[in-house]
């Protein structure tokens, strides 16, 4: 009984149909035989007929069950479609959540970086007044902008002058002499035009008699002030260093 219940409805239907076919054939053959032989029927045909009727009833019941199962199958197909739709919705939602997670992770990382830089800035904080004062000092010494009356050949700002390079840390590292005529030249003094007489640049177009005493004749338009004891190696170093005007000018103070 349990085995029969586990069988599929299709198998049961086909089995009962086979039984019906066999029983109907047997019944017809038996009737035909009995009719030809003219012998009284022993009652076997009645049994077969009863069995046939029983099987036919069972077959009809099974067909009803099959019809019901067909309807349930349609309902199941609808449910399967609904499940597929829900699955696609869930996958879409999952994709969106992944994207959101990625965006949020990036934002958190950037925020952490920003917090770290803020913390770092807090530790080495410099007062704004000091920065403004320093900026004023740089700009006042024509470190970032040439004077209005600047002409080619003028050894003043915007680039660091040879004197400033020699008086800076790099100049000291190279053991460059920075006293006497090559002593420290304050930027404010340059900006204000109050150069000491000895440091006042003398240009060839101004007065040749003064400049002739100051500069060696082979310099021509080269206005770098060559100190005593100046050698070729140091000159190369200084010239290479004086190319970066902004950073060198701030370092020289």
């Amino acid at each position: 009984m349990a085995a029969a219940a586990e069988k599929s409805t299709k198998e049961r239907l086909l089995s009962v149909l086979d039984d019906l076919e066999v029983l109907s054939r047997e019944l017809i053959e038996m009737l035909a035989l009995a009719r030809n032989q003219k012998v009284p029927q022993p009652g076997e045909d009645t049994q077969i007929l009863e069995l046939l009727v029983q099987r036919d009833k069972e077959f009809q019941e099974l067909m009803e069950v099959a019809q019901q199962q067909g309807k349930i199958h349609q309902e199941m197909q609808l449910l399967e479609k609904e499940v597929e739709k829900r699955d696609s919705d869930i996958q879409q939602l999952q994709k969106q959540l992944k994207e959101a997670e990625h965006i949020l992770a990036t934002a958190v990382y950037q925020a952490k970086e920003k917090l770290a830089s803020i913390e770092k800035a807090k530790k080495g904080s410099v007062s704004s007044e000091e920065i403004i004062k320093y900026a004023h000092r740089i700009s006042a010494s024509n470190a970032v902008c040439a004077p209005l009356n600047w002409v080619p050949g003028d050894p003043r700002r915007p680039y660091p002058t040879d004197l400033e390079m020699r008086s800076g840390i790099l100049g000291h590292m190279a053991n460059l002499p920075s006293n006497g005529v090559n002593g420290h030249l304050p930027g404010d003094a340059l900006a204000a035009g109050r150069l000491p007489d000895i440091l006042t640049p003398h240009y060839p177009w101004q007065s040749s008699d003064v400049s002739a005493g100051m500069l060696p004749p082979h310099h021509g338009n080269d206005f770098s002030l060559e100190p005593p004891g100046h050698n070729k190696e140091n000159e190369d170093d200084v010239e290479a260093m004086s190319t970066d005007s902004s950073s060198s000018s701030s370092d020289s103070d």
């Binding site: 599929s8 086909l14 067909g70």
Partner: peptide, 28 residues
């Protein structure tokens, strides 16, 4: 009979599948 759909399993099995599907739809 061969062309009928939904009769490849017994009615209890089909009921079980139907219940599973309903449960899936409900959960989702």
């Amino acid at each position: 009979i061969s062309n009928m759909s939904g009769i490849d399993c017994s009615p209890p099995e089909q009921q079980q599948q139907l219940a599973t599907l309903r449960e899936q739809v409900r959960t989702k």
